[in-house]
Write a protein that binds this DNA or RNA. Structure first.
Lengths: 253, 253
DNA sequence: TAAATAGTGTCTATAAGACATTATCTC
DNA sequence: GAGATAATGTCTTATAGACACTATTTA
């Protein structure tokens, strides 16, 4: 038994450290889940899609839709990319066709990886959290991917008191990410139909931020985006419940 | 063999899907590495700590310091938290004592999880990338954690032409994160000693952003932080190579 | 004395917040 | 006509960028 650092009383701490790291690589590995915070804005309210768990643990409790990263057999196949897994799971859990997701420019973005020990009672599971932004026209098409599952859109302002796993924390972090990015990116346009009025996009902002904006000031900011070419006018006008018909716009690029 | 969906020609796609997901959970799992982009600012230059790989794959190439997440035996122990793993690996790779890291308020933050298949030729490995900000007074204390490893501070503006794995991409993403957060958070104060002059903190900003700032305008912004109580005056003055002695400040909270 | 740095002040442009105003539609 | 909405305009305040200026130190 020559030169085994763990059996050598004079082995350096570094040698022991190396051996431990090496063995970890050889031995136990975590499962990796991809959980997705699927958000939309309908009727000026920010909503999130939750599924009721049919199995233990946390049976009958609400949780985020998710699935496991597919890893190949490790010999000739290493499995799917993490990005592809997120897209696959989003399609599976919403029942939407991948082509529909792409055509409607559904925004999908990685948020954070949650890795506390014992966050899943069964075995060690990391969750790579993602957030998806679904435009309202797709919401009626969403249906449970598996026959037994129950899925519901919850108001983000009125969530279940308890959720499975650490999904309440994950949800909070994802919403926070969207709330901040909406100020300095164009992700809000993933939450409206392909054409929209100024009021519609403003109400979407208000739903995401949970606040109201001055109409004139918002329009001024919007007009800057028009002159910058970020937004373009679309043909036609949209008639509301009152007031003059509103101009219709389209997001570019 | 009753009701096995994979053997039932009439099984729904959903049932088959469920079975596949379940089996993935039972079968192959990825390894999870924690790789850390360790940054500092010395002599008005942004630098990153790289290690030369002593083993295959990518032997003799430069790569980010990293290690594997420790997962327990899966029965009575699920191993260490992901956050704890990052801290442990940071301490191991810099040779710095955890107490020293805490006392000097070293900033450590998760950035992104890289999960392309085949990013490691040995087996499926996810990398949970982190970024650490080390103040300059700790730089002389950094030494290789393991006797065989060679570690060097590289200029971020002059990196090795090729790096192991996808570590070039990871490094870029981490630097981008720091460059943007430095504008709306206080992380820059993790890159200066406990007390500093206005010029010193300005040069740190310039090193991170890769740009120069107007002296007067920067000081105006700095003074707002003083009146807001974010920064406080420290006793004494600092004498430079020329010009009058500069006031010394300290970051609060 | 020359050069460099500390520290202050000024002018302008940009954008946000808080309004007010007019026009046009539905009920 | 009443109420609601579309669209525009005005005044104030906060901040950033460009730049000028004085004071104080070292070499």
């Amino acid at each position: 038994m020559p030169n085994r650092p763990d059996l050598d009383p004079n082995a350096s701490p570094e040698a022991l450290q190396f051996l431990r790291d090496y063995r970890e690589n050889q031995y136990a590995r975590p499962s990796v889940a991809v959980d997705i915070v699927i958000l939309t804005v309908v009727d000026t309210e920010l909503k999130v899609l939750l599924v009721r768990r049919a199995e233990h643990p946390f049976r009958d409790m609400w949780a985020l839709p998710g699935g496991f990263l597919r890893v190949g057999d490790m010999y000739d196949d290493q499995g799917e990319d993490l990005d592809d897994a997120a897209f696959r799971i989003l399609a599976a859990k919403t029942g939407l066709d991948p082509a529909v997701l792409r055509n409607n420019k559904v925004h999908l973005e990685q948020v954070y990886t949650f890795g506390k020990a014992n966050r899943d009672p069964r075995t060690r599971v990391l969750s790579v959290a993602h957030v998806a932004l679904v435009p309202p026209q797709l919401v009626p098409l969403v249906h449970p991917g598996s026959a037994s599952a129950e899925v519901t859109w919850f108001l983000v302002s009125d969530l279940p008191a308890v959720m499975g796993f650490d999904h309440g924390v994950i949800l909070e972090k994802a919403v926070e990410r969207v709330r901040s990015k909406v100020d300095y990116t164009n992700i809000a346009f993933s939450l409206v139909p392909l054409t929209f009025t100024v009021s519609e996009i403003r109400e979407t902002f208000e739903a995401v931020k949970g606040d109201t904006f001055d109409l004139g000031n918002f329009r001024r900011k919007f007009n800057r985006m028009v002159t910058d070419g970020i937004i373009g006018e679309a043909p036609g006008k949209r008639v509301g419940r009152s007031g003059p018909p509103a101009r219709v716009y389209r997001f570019r690029a």
